[in-house]
Simulated scan of single mutants.
Amino acid sequence: MKPTLLIVEDEPAILRGLTDLFVFHGYDVDSEIDGVQGLKRAQQNDYACILLDVMLPSMSGFEICEVLRQTSATQPIMMLTAKSTEQDIINGLSLGADDYVAKPFSTSELVLRVNALVRRSGWNQHEEALILSKNVSVCPHTLTGTSYQLPVKYTRREVSLLSYLLRQNKPVSRDELLHQVWGYKTVGDIDTRTVDIHIAKLRKKIEQDPKSPRHLVTHRGEGYQLYTQ
């Protein structure tokens, strides 16, 4: 069976173009132009990935993402935004989006990112817990954990990032993370802020003091390293 995408986009020309693009690349595509109808469709079906425009009639893409995350921690969600400011990116990722692309975007980059999300959407239910310390642990299957006695919810990307860093005993560069965690074959034209934003979000979840991290440490000029203590 072909993977099915849901695209919620209110500009007809962009919607037709995206539909044709992903059908060409082997997907089935459902679509909606209205936010409320997009949410309804998303809740009624199982999609390989949901692409949400931020600015929609009746309900924004941010609001749809927030509602979907209340019932599914594992649904792959890609935000399509006309804005590329860091605050807009942070808003989408903070609400649970797995990735974002800012308009105008490269169609090849968009397909690459969606393919990466879909490829990484199947979790091994028997994957062992990630133990960072006696105070911090993560369950990859449920995307939940505890951090200093507080319950924490993670996104799929955050767990994948932690899992990869934990397997390395060295600093890992942004380019390597984009290759190994995001699944990009080439990274020359890809915005690396998404890595930095995910690192910042993870520090808020796993560090007792995010401004003075002990687990997820930056080595200037080398990359990020995850330490267990």
Rank of each mutant, 00 (worst) to 15 (best):
N135C: 11
T228N: 15
P57S: 03
P213D: 11
E176S: 06
N115Q: 09
T228P: 09
I33L: 15
D88W: 07
Q149G: 07
T4K: 10
L178T: 03
G145M: 08
G188T: 15
K103M: 13
G188Q: 14
V152W: 01
G35W: 04
G183D: 10
T144N: 10
E207W: 04
S84F: 12
V101Y: 01
I90Q: 15
Q43N: 13
E32F: 07
A102K: 05
P151Q: 04
A82M: 14
S72N: 12
S133M: 04
T85M: 13
T192C: 09
L52V: 07
E128Y: 08
L52M: 09
V195C: 05
P213Q: 09
F105G: 06
R167A: 12
V54E: 05
G61V: 01
R220T: 15
S106E: 10
Y164Q: 01
D10R: 01
W182R: 03
K153F: 08
V101K: 02
R113F: 00
N115H: 07
L93M: 05
T4D: 03
T186Y: 12
V8W: 02
H179N: 12
W123M: 12
Y154K: 00
D98C: 04
R220C: 14
L117N: 01
T71F: 12
Q44N: 11
E66I: 10
K211H: 11
Q125L: 14
D53N: 11
A13Y: 11
G183Q: 09
L132F: 05
E63F: 05
R120W: 07
A200C: 02
I33H: 10
D53P: 00
A13E: 13
